Simulated assay, not measured.
Amino acid sequence: MLNTLKFSLPEILSLIGLSQCVYILVYMAFRSGSLKRALIPAFYFLFLGLGFFADFGHSFIGQTSPYYAVAQWFFWFIGPPLSVLLMVQIARIEKLPNAGLFGVLLLTPLAYLFSVAMASRDNECIFPAACPIFMDWLLICGLVAGSISMLAIWLQRGVLEDLSREKRGKERYWLILTLVFANLFFLCLMFMGLEYGFTDQKVVLARTLSGLAFVYLANTSLFRIYPQAMQLINANTKDELSADEKTIAYRIEKLVDMDKIYHEASYGRADLARELEIPETVASKIINVHFRKSFPQLLNERRVADAKQLLAETDASMKVVAEEVGFNSLATFNRVFKDMEGVAPSAYRKAAKSP
């Protein structure tokens, strides 16, 4: 039996996408930290996984129901409205989107109802199994619904503009733009399939590739800041330090502010834990709760503060400034400084020294 079991390229890609969606959902279950805030991404990857599963199983179980193709369509075209909610939540990170924005989820069911109404006008159409025009209407209406969803992102441009101006919001801003382009890529592929009469296999291959693009973004970019960022927010509101931990926190403050341990480029969390004679996990918890940031962020903030002073008050070269404040390379110094201050060190010096 195994010798006769063969999969096409779209089926193999769909199976890969399905396994990745399952991995993402399991990952979120253990790392989100807040069920409420994880619902939108969980539903997005749930429906994306169902889309992969439906495409993979089409040749095996596609004939079991006349509504199988409709289910495939729904699983894929609910993606753009859900991704709108996901993008807005990424922008706000600690808040759910406004209740009114959830109305975009109605676009896909409305597209289905409109398609039914238009196809029912064809007397030769036997709905839904023997009705090619119905599937054409589903694709057209799905494209319209997806395009309107992208318009909803444009209406939220104020949130995105605010995010782009935040010193720590640029990574999320570019991630959101990438997700917008990924959605537009999906819609363009579906439009090309309609315009040029792609076969069903080509349509499946096209949307599978776009779905894999979302999975790739999730694995490489999305979960570097989300939902770990929500987990940190949730932990910060619940965790409290004991009296002993507060004492350790004050010792850390002294090491950072008085002893300036951050001037040593190689100084890390392990060195801090060894100096305080505590486990690294305890040191991380105290820093996250007391300072509301990670240890590298804490050190880099102090380094940049010292660098600003040197840039404004001395003519030392950039390399010297970077070494003096504790950066191990000029490239790292330039990158961290620009991320935190919004301008390059050279531009900051020029502005600080201008009359």
Rank of each mutant, 00 (worst) to 15 (best):
A270I: 12
E313M: 11
G211Y: 05
A249F: 04
F198R: 03
L212Q: 12
T247H: 14
G211F: 05
L217V: 13
L241Q: 08
P279T: 13
N219Q: 15
Y226C: 06
R274A: 15
R292P: 01
S221A: 12
V304K: 03
G211E: 02
L241E: 01
K246E: 10
D259S: 14
A305H: 05
V203D: 01
V256Q: 00
K246A: 02
R251N: 13
E301L: 08
E253G: 03
L276A: 13
L276W: 09
K202H: 13
V304W: 02
T281H: 12
E264P: 01
L298P: 03
P227K: 12
Y216M: 02
T247N: 12
D257R: 11
F295S: 08
V321S: 08
F214Q: 02
S242F: 10
E301A: 07
M318R: 11
A273D: 09
E240A: 13
A218C: 04
A229Q: 00
A316C: 09
A312G: 06
R292A: 03
L241S: 01
L311M: 06
I225N: 00
K293I: 04
F295E: 09
E240G: 11
A270W: 07
Y250S: 10
M230A: 09
E245R: 04
E245M: 04
S294R: 01
V320R: 09
A307H: 07
F214N: 00
Y250N: 07
E245F: 01
F295Y: 15
A206N: 00
V256L: 07
D306Y: 02
Q309E: 11
D315I: 08
V320D: 06
I248S: 09
N300M: 02
K254H: 15
T199W: 03
N219A: 09
D239Q: 13
T281K: 13
L298V: 13
K293C: 10
L311G: 00
F291Y: 14
L241H: 07
Q309M: 05
E313Y: 09
R269S: 07
Q309V: 06
V282R: 04
S242R: 09
D257W: 07
A305S: 10
Y226L: 06
A316S: 12
Q309C: 08
L298T: 14
S242N: 08
I248Y: 13
M318P: 02
K285R: 15
K246Q: 08
K319L: 12
F214M: 02
R292K: 10
R224H: 05
A235D: 06
K238R: 14
I261D: 04
T237Y: 14
V204E: 00
I286E: 04
Y216C: 03
A283E: 08
